[in-house]
Amino acid sequence: MSQIATTPVQTQVARIRSPFAFRLRRGKGRGKLYVGTLIVGAIAVLAIFSRVIAPFDPITQDLTSQFLPPSHAHLFGTDQFGRDVFSRAVYAASLDLQIAFLGTLFCMLLGVSIGVVAGYFGGIVDLIAGRLIDVVTAIPGIVAIIALIAALGSSMLNLYIALAVTGWTAYARLARGEVIAAKNLQYVQASRALGYTNRRIVLRHILPNVITPPLLFWITDMVGTVLLVTALSYLGLGPQPPTPEWGAMISEAQPFMLMAWWVPLFPGLGIVIAGIGLGLLGDGLADFLRPEVG
């Protein structure tokens, strides 16, 4: 306290000059972690309490107030049906983040299970898992999802299925590598010698050692999945109108862009800010958890 009190001017100057550099420079990703948590937390609050926070109904049309520019009443303006863009964006945050969160969660559960089993048992199981990974990674993500949705039909359940089926491979690769490393650790070998069951060794001894890289990737993966899901609905293959969804909002607003730039702008900003928040959180956590090397 006394130090701050004696040098108020310098502290001020340093902060004004580069607020970001100042926070980030505090090593070990602490700054990134703070900012990321703050952004993600704020968006999560918006998403969870969207019903309370959104001032207007996201779906009811009001053709008397089409294309109103941003104002106090309509923070982000209104769209071609007179709906409040802010309310729709807030509801969309709820939907998109839910899909991204659950979708990647399924991917992680599936991927880590396959990776652990493949890495632990090796041999033919590993070989089959490897070939599966090869096939799934060969088909570019969104192409595979589009193909699956084309066949299965467009519904929320099918979207989750398509996400899980195409998105698990990175987790499996990470988990498999970690398991192979952990398997050779002394205490794992010892528990084998003690005659513990495979299930117990995997769950009690291997999994806790293996889970960190997939968990870290999970956060990064959410950034990609938000982009993927919004792109799908932009293409018309996600949640259908009038459901408020960021990608669909942008797609619907495109024909009126010259008239009302704010309609596509704000949903996109939502995607970007969510992405930046998650990105910072993921990077910060990775730096934070990384063993100290120089």
């Binding site: 982009l227 792109a231 862009m257 970007v272 969510a274 930046i276 910072l280």
Partner: peptide
Amino acid sequence: MGFLVAIALPSFWIGTLLIY
């Protein structure tokens, strides 16, 4: 910071803005 933002940019949105 630029890298971080660019990774989070949805192509369909940035494309739309560029067309505009």
